[in-house]
Design a protein around this nucleic acid. Structure first.
Length: 580
RNA sequence: GCGCGCGUAGCUCAAUGGAUAGAGUACUGGCCUCCGAAGCCAGGGGUUGUGGGUUCGAUCCCCGCCGCGCGCACCA
């Protein structure tokens, strides 16, 4: 066996060498960050550093001369075949053949752990989706789900302990409106016709829930339509009428109102949950907003704010002085009638997150919520919590296009394409990958015609196809993969093989950067690039050749590639088919 | 009006302050007696919205302007 001595990550190795040179050439700059990049241009070596250019400013010297001195002061390395100074002062490194291919050995040895970061010891919570359980999830929620799930997986793989959470808005007016909508549909089943408010929930699922209640309780909840509309105010204000209807329903139904309310909540939550699970999106904790009220956490959080002097009274209401923390205006937390605003449980919830011991908390929010960031962070600061421990990642909107037409996305009107429909038409894998093909702060045009009728052209198949091809070769080989671990990699010399090795070597750093930047889309792009490097190699060279040494080296490269494809795709929630 | 985000190839989108701004798609021309052609190779395509500034160097950082989206409740 020609097992090479362990070669560490090339970036770390090169940075170490440069650090030694730096300490000797310019000790006063020893603290400068040494950055090792991979040149885009072939001919500039395997790696490059701009260290000399960074130092030129303060040293007031020619960067090329600094580079020459650094190179001269660098200790020799058995892994480097050439060091040159080029361009404006770049130091370009060319690795030896064994250093270039060493990543294959590492990937084979580590398998599903290849790319995994060292344990950071940090507990991180990712809260995502958290849609009101007032109807089916739509394609916008789907983006938040795909993004949040991939981000959470990425953070975990990068070395953090991650908890995935869904905040259930089970208190408040929207749930009351849904319960009312369902009850009115229920009454219709008994010909008690109350004019259905245009601002109530119109979707067909509301009628379905009404039929469920009818099946379980027959006419037990029926009241005359005349009684429902009896005390309605005469006004043009639709919201006022809706609130009056809710009051009437509560009044007429008494304890039964709670049943209807609970039923619609349970039903919608179950639907949402199964939808997400089918999408490969899992939450560890489903946190109830109601529980914040029931356990007194809301009241506790508000009194904590009051005790620290950040509340004041005006017009009978209690205000949080959020302007002290950079917000545009102060916010009411408790109305003059004693009821808390929606903001109050939000404060309690975020306080609770940190009381549960999370070092960092990540909220994945729709872009329309960006205005709430200052007040939530402000509340945390006021409660003595370092607000920088809370990160809010905004996910921009999704516009769905069908037959060239922009589809309506009105939740209340019930006229929208659901996540379920999208998944069934496009497929889970394509959905998950498509959602990841742009950064979160970019609005997304989802072209369903392209995703369905031309689904062969979806990039996800390109990546999965690389995986299937490798599986196919391995099954024809009929050998033991374990025997490849200590294979001599010297036969890997073709330029497409070197390029593929280089791409594999980028994976661990990519994971770290993607996690640091909350940018799972970079993983999707990386996998496309990796698949491209594989396909190029696969077309240029044959794996199952007669020469044993060459064959084994190429098999090892194929297996290493498959490890990275698997690790990457599974982080994105995309399956890795053996054949397709 | 104020605040946040975004303007990159015909279209959809990438690019930790680095060398000649890249992919896909579309278009053009090649590659299967050979491990999967859902693949590969080659080609044309750009004043990175616009005007300044910082820097050895700017798609990236700062300021103005233009355009698009979102938000500006004692609603959730």
């Amino acid at each position: 066996m020609h097992t090479a001595p362990d070669f560490p990550d090339p970036r770390l190795h090169l940075a170490d060498l440069l650090q030694v040179a730096l300490d000797s050439v310019a000790p006063e700059h020893a603290a400068v960050d040494i950055f090792i990049e991979r040149p885009k241009q072939a001919g500039h070596g395997d790696f490059a550093s701009n260290l000399a250019m960074q130092m030129a400013r303060t040293m007031k010297a020619n960067p090329r001369q600094i580079a020459e001195r650094l190179v001269a002061a660098m200790p020799p390395s058995q892994w480097i075949s050439e060091v040159t100074v080029a361009g404006a002062g770049f130091i370009n490194f060319t690795l030896t053949a064994s250093a270039r291919t060493a990543v294959v050995s590492r990937a084979l040895a580590q398998g599903s752990a290849f790319g995994r970061g060292a344990d950071t010891g940090l507990k991180v919570q990712v809260e995502f989706v958290s849609a009101n359980p007032t109807g089916p999830l739509h394609v916008g929620h789907g983006r938040g789900a795909a993004f949040g799930a991939s981000l959470a997986s990425l953070l975990a793989f990068a070395g953090n302990t991650v908890s995935r959470e869904y905040y259930v808005n089970d208190a408040g007016r929207q749930m009351d409106i849904l319960a009312l909508s369902t009850w009115l549909r229920y009454l219709e089943l008994f010909d008690e016709l109350v004019p259905f408010p245009p601002n109530a929930y119109q979707g067909g699922y509301v009628r379905e829930m009404a039929e469920q209640i009818q099946a379980a309780h027959q006419d037990n909840f029926v009241h005359p339509a005349a009684a429902v509309v009896a005390g309605l105010p005469v006004t043009e204000d639709l919201d006022e009428i809706l609130d009056a209807l809710i009051l009437a329903a509560k009044d007429l139904l008494g304890e039964q109102w709670k049943y209807v309310h609970q039923h619609v909540l349970t039903e919608q939550l179950a639907d949402c949950r199964s939808d997400l699970e089918e999408f490969g999106v899992h939450h560890d904790v489903w946190f109830s907003e109601n529980s914040l009220h029931d356990t007194g956490m809301v009241a506790k959080a508000i009194s904590a704010l009051e005790a620290s002097g950040h509340l004041y009274e005006q017009d009978g209401a209690k205000w949080f002085r959020s302007t002290s923390f950079g917000d545009e205006k102060d916010r009411v937390v408790q109305r003059d009638n004693g009821a808390f605003t929606y903001f109050a449980p939000d404060i309690a919830y975020h306080l609770n997150k940190f009381e549960r011991g999370f070092d960092r908390v990540v909220n994945v929010w729709g872009a329309d919520h960006h205005g709430y960031i200052p007040r939530v962070k402000g509340a945390l600061s006021a409660l003595g919590i370092d607000a920088s421990r809370l990160d809010v990642t905004l996910v921009q909107f999704v516009s769905l296009f069908r037959a060239g037409q922009k589809a309506s996305m009105s939740t209340r009107a019930g006229e929208y394409v659901t996540l379920r429909q999208l998944r069934h038409e496009v497929g889970n894998d394509a959905c998950r990958f498509f959602y990841m093909l742009r950064k979160s702060d970019q609005s997304l045009d989802f072209d369903m015609d392209l995703a369905t009728s031309q689904s062969n052209e979806n990039p996800v198949f390109y990546v999965q196809y690389a995986h299937a091809r490798i599986c196919s070769v391995l099954s024809q080989w009929e050998g033991e993969e374990a025997s490849l671990v200590s294979t001599d990699l010297a036969p890997l010399t073709h330029e497409t093989e070197i390029a593929l090795c280089a791409q594999l070597g980028e994976f661990p750093l990519l994971i770290q950067n993607a996690a640091k930047d909350f940018a799972p889309h970079t993983l999707a792009f990386y996998l496309k690039d990796l698949a491209a490097a594989f396909h190029a190699w696969y077309n240029a060279e044959r794996v199952l050749v007669d020469d044993i040494a060459t064959r084994n080296a190429r098999l090892a490269l194929a297996v290493a590639t498959r490890h990275v494809l698997r690790n990457g795709l599974s982080l994105l929630g995309v399956s890795q088919p053996v054949s397709m």
